[in-house]
């Protein structure tokens, strides 16, 4: 029980911080049936931070 809770907490914190973005991308890539291989992990994170340059997550007061 405790182990499950801890695992749940880790899953949640990683999700909120965005750590699972690459896994989610791979999953999307597979489901959507895009042609060609998916980006490697390094390429993905590079592309993600480059995209943030123009598409910014807002931050409030």
């Amino acid at each position: 029980m405790l182990v499950r809770w801890c695992r749940g907490l880790v899953w949640w914190v990683q999700g909120v911080l965005g750590e699972d973005a690459y896994i989610r991308y791979l999953d999307h890539h597979r489901r959507a049936g895009h042609p060609g291989p998916p980006m490697t992990e390094r390429e993905f994170w590079r592309a993600r931070s480059d995209r943030q340059e123009t598409d910014l997550r807002g931050r409030c007061c």
Binding site: W12, Y25, R48, R59
Partner: peptide
Amino acid sequence: ENGQDYLPMDRRVLYGHHFAAIAG
């Protein structure tokens, strides 16, 4: 869905995400 900014996110994670964005 494009695997990047449009992507379904678990509601509990999105709650934390949204809260972190609005609260400062």
